[in-house]
Each structure stands twice: as C-alpha cells, then as structure tokens.
Write a protein that binds this DNA or RNA. Structure first.
Lengths: 173, 173
DNA sequence: GCAAAGTGATTAACATGTTAAGTGATTGTG
DNA sequence: CACAATCACTTAACATGTTAATCACTTTGC
C-alpha cells in the first residue's frame, strides 16, 4: 500500500499566489526525467565502481584524447572543484594520467590510460544496449524531437540575460 | 583565445567502440538544459538565502498544506536523508513547523509557517517573471511540447525493467 | 627587471546526492 | 502477548555541487 492511499490533506489552498503547479515546473520535469533515465544506467556503472561523473570524464577523454583540465570541465559539464577531486581519484586508480605543459606550468593535460580504455570497453556494451532499449521503447523519432527541443531551449536561454538577483530593487534606479 | 583554438589532438579515435557522441547523450542534454534553466533562477533564490531544494520544499508545502515527511520527499523529489537535513535547517529558521502524529509516533507532518509563506510571496513574483520570459522566448507551444515529451519519456522508462548491474556477465561462471 | 594584475588549477567550507546503518514505533504472527 | 519483521525517519559516511579563497605561475605596465 505504499502508493495506495493519498493524503487527505488535499488543501492546495495555502498559497495566495497560485504559481504553476509545482510538480510540472520545467526544472522539476527535467530533473525527474533525467533521473528516470539515469536510474537505468547507474546499476551498470556501479557494478564497475564508477559514478556517473567518473564515467562522463572517461567518456570525454576517450573521445578527445589528451585534453586540458579546463576544457575537460567544459565538455564533461563539471565544475573545476569537482573535477579536481575526481581526477585525483581516477589518477590514483590509474585510469587516467596527467602531465604538465612545458609551455605553461599552470596547465596540465589529462589522458585516459589503457586500463581506463579497457574499463570503457567493458561498460560500453551494456550502456549501448540500455540506450538502444530506451530508444526502442520511446521511439527514435520522438527521442530526436526531444533532443532538438532541449537544444533549442538551451540556446534560447543562453541568449536570455541572466537576472542578477538584485532585481529592480528600489534603490538602483 | 580561451575558446578559439580547439585541441589539435582531434583524435576521437582513441575509443574502439564508437558510442554516441558523448555531448549529445540524453542524460547530458537533460543536465545541460536543466542547468541553463536553473542558471536564471538561482540568483533570485540566492538573494533570499534559499537553495533550489529549500525552495522546492517551501513550494511543495505551500501547495499542499500539512504533509507527511515521506510524501513531501516524493513531491519535492528529494531523498529522505537530504530532506531530513533540510527540514532541520528550515525548522531552525522558523520557515516550517513539524508535529508528531498521535496516531503513529513514527510519523510527523510538516507545514509552512507564516514566515515561510511571506518568503514565498517575496520570491514568487520574480520567479514567475523569469518563467514568463522563458516561455515568451522559447514559445509556449514548444514549451508544452517539451513538457509532454519529457512526461512520455518518463512514463516509457518507468515501464522499462531496471537492469540490476549483474547483466548476463559471460565471465562470472 | 619587478611589482601588480590576471589566469589555471586546487583547496576549503558547506549543502546536497546517495547508499547503508541505526533508532524508535508499529504490526503481524505464532 | 512476546517478538521478529516492517516501517518512518534520522544519522553516518563518502562523493559531488557550489562559491570563495588560495596557490603557483604568467602576463602586463611601468
């Protein structure tokens, strides 16, 4: 009966300001959908002792060869601090390597090791199979429609100036 | 030239297994798009000392009145441990209240305080304005198409059995 | 040259995500 | 009615998200 009985509270009257129904806000939809996707991938990654982020990094490295840390952060969509910690860990596990750039000792380039590549080769088939099954169930056409809309929205929002939290705030007029 | 020169490595040859171009995998697309959305909301929340998750909880409480912790976790899409910590904090700030259920002392119900409601009323107009601007830029029709696809995908994946990480595992016999 | 400003990367500090373990309360079964 | 199983919630422990500070190195301006 975990999902059977619903709260009798019902209410939905507390807020004077209506606002869109909370659960169908765009950020929530994106979050829930992403989780419903990742839920299928995590077991396989976990079976190989990889987190989602570690996997993103290995994938990015396998795709781009040697790459600078900053650029890696960009393509793997991770913030610097997270990346630093994860690289330290992956380097300790000999899945990646780092070397300093002679031309600029502040920078270093990262690359995947053969051990890292073997790990990818071990995980990739399962990932691909899962992705294929998802595509089959959802429909290739709808999947690409979705991808297109996601990209369009991303582009539209990049063009939208970011509010700075100060708002019009009375004083800066 | 931070973004000018691309890595000469070019490679993309390291991996023997092709795999979809990493950056357009579905999880990455969803993550990037969600971030591009949240980027616009965070400054406003931050200006009121709220994190995204705290805001989700307050919104959920405002919409549903009194609600049990487990149900709140479900609607705010948070795991129990995260919720426990955040409720402790919000209670300390007098934005929410808790009371035990006499009928079952394991359970407690959470509700938003008038201070919490005032905070929502202070933040909501800005949020609504941002959401409206997004809708205007992206298009209301495309937005609802996107929402529909997200929900469909979510439904399709819920119906898909979760791999357990064991796979068929050829080798562990 | 050299002090100041800028840049790439890491560390620090705190909040959340995630899984496992713990705590107290309740329930079902013999 | 004892008592093991279950349940609701919390804690614990570790990884990541996030912002700020720091460190080492480079570039700039004088």
């Amino acid at each position: 009966m975990t999902t059977a009985s619903k709260p009798r509270t019902a209410a939905k009257a507390a807020a004077k300001i209506p606002m869109r129904d909370f659960s169908q806000s765009l950020p929530m939809s994106l979050l829930r959908t992403r989780e419903s996707v990742m839920r299928h991938f995590r077991p396989s990654l976990r079976a190989h002792d990889l987190t989602e982020q570690q996997w993103r990094i290995l994938r990015a490295l396998a795709a781009s060869g040697e790459i600078e840390v900053t650029e890696l952060a960009r393509v793997a969509f991770l913030l610097g601090p997270s990346l630093s910690r994860i690289l330290r860990d992956l380097e300790g596990r000999r899945l990646i390597e780092r070397r300093l750039l002679k031309a600029d000792l502040r920078r270093s380039v990262v690359s995947i090791t053969s051990k890292g590549l073997k790990l990818i080769e071990a995980v990739a088939p399962t990932s691909e199979a899962i992705y294929a099954e998802m595509t089959k169930r959802f429909g290739a056409r709808k999947l690409s429609d979705l991808q297109a809309l996601l990209h369009e929205l991303e582009a539209a929002l990049l063009a939208m100036p970011a509010a700075d939290g100060a708002e019009d705030d009375l004083f800066d007029r």
